[in-house]
Simulated assay, not measured.
Amino acid sequence: MTTTDNSLNLVIPGDSISLENNDISNIALGPNVTLENDSTLQPTTAGLFVSSSTKGASKNLYYVDTASGRYVPQVGDLVVGTIIGQFGEYYRVSINEFSKEVLLNIFAFPNASKKNRPRLQVRELIYARVSSTEKSVDVELSCVDPTTGKDGGFGALSGGYTFNVSCAYARFLLFTPNAPVLKKMVEKLQFEIAIGVNGKVWIKSDSSKATMLCVYIISESQNWKQSEISENVDKLIKKFKSL
């Protein structure tokens, strides 16, 4: 199979996807796909193979989109998790209500040491990257950007509100440059956001009411047509201001 820009193709594990005229430095991998060599990708699950190159973007994005409602961790995934306990040098983290918890090493933070590391509490939220998914071993997370060695936006999420969207929609929001609903919200609202491919979204605005407006917009936008987004966001903001 040979890719074309912004293409969609049904793939299954075992398929080989040839990338023509792509320098390895210009490739960004999303979920459910691995790079076998400098010019071939292989899907790790069945679904729609998405190749997306956007004008002005520094890299071409490739991933396999699946309608499966259950999130299965893959190395490199960005996730929103909840601290549920600690033992030894590890925090136990829940990233899905119906899956086994994963681990976060207390030293998996930039410049972490025994004297200098985050002190996370039970029920505290984190934004992290899946760093290991070895068979027969617990999945591990990291709050270090592997390309820079810095936090890269990972770490504890203070305040705000966390809610669920479908995994497919979370991937769409995370991997689509200028996702329409987020682009429209940025024009009208001030907020911070962290999106996990595990279907969890954390958002924080300057007030509780504004935060809940953002939550409602993103949750409802899963059911909107793209042509309806601008008008619907404007209507909801107008209604919010009248309360």
Rank of each mutant, 00 (worst) to 15 (best):
E231C: 05
V197G: 08
N164L: 05
K241Y: 11
N26F: 05
E101A: 15
K235T: 00
E20K: 15
K200G: 00
I27V: 15
F109I: 03
S25M: 01
R92V: 07
A156N: 09
N96Y: 11
L41Y: 07
L104H: 10
F109N: 04
Q74L: 12
G81K: 12
S131W: 03
N111I: 00
S113T: 15
D234T: 06
Y161G: 01
Q74H: 14
G85S: 09
G160M: 10
V79F: 06
G159C: 11
Y127R: 07
L243R: 14
D65F: 02
D206N: 10
L157E: 02
S219L: 14
K55D: 09
G152R: 09
S53L: 12
K150R: 15
E134F: 06
S227T: 15
Q86E: 13
G30L: 08
G149S: 05
C214T: 04
T176W: 06
A210K: 15
S132N: 14
K115G: 15
L8D: 01
N232T: 02
I12R: 14
I83P: 13
K150N: 13
V165N: 00
F109H: 06
L125M: 13
M185G: 06
S94D: 05
F172N: 12
Y216A: 14
L41S: 03
A156R: 14
S227L: 10
P180W: 03
G85I: 11
F87L: 08
Y71H: 14
S68F: 04
Y169V: 01
N21C: 06
L213E: 07
R171W: 01
T133C: 08
D138V: 02
I229T: 10
P177M: 04
N232A: 08
P43S: 07
A128P: 06
A128M: 08
V144R: 08
G159W: 12
K204H: 12
K59A: 14
G85R: 12
G14I: 15
S58Q: 12
P180F: 03
K225I: 00
V130H: 02
V139A: 03
D5N: 13
E89V: 12
L182N: 04
G81I: 05
L61I: 14
R70H: 04
E124F: 04
D145P: 03
F87C: 02
T54Y: 03
N21D: 14
A28W: 02
N105E: 05
C167L: 09
R171V: 06
L48P: 01
G153Q: 09
E140M: 06
L61W: 02
P118D: 03
N223Y: 13
F87R: 13
I126L: 13
G160D: 11
E192R: 13
V201R: 10
G152S: 12
P31C: 11
S205M: 10
V75M: 07
V33D: 05
E220V: 01
I12T: 11
G85F: 09
D23M: 03
R171C: 13
Q226D: 12
S242W: 01
P118C: 07
P180I: 07
F191Q: 00
E187K: 15
T34S: 10
Y62V: 09
P13C: 05
E187N: 12
V139I: 15
E101K: 08
I95E: 10
T148I: 03
M1P: 11
S25D: 07
G149K: 06
G196A: 04
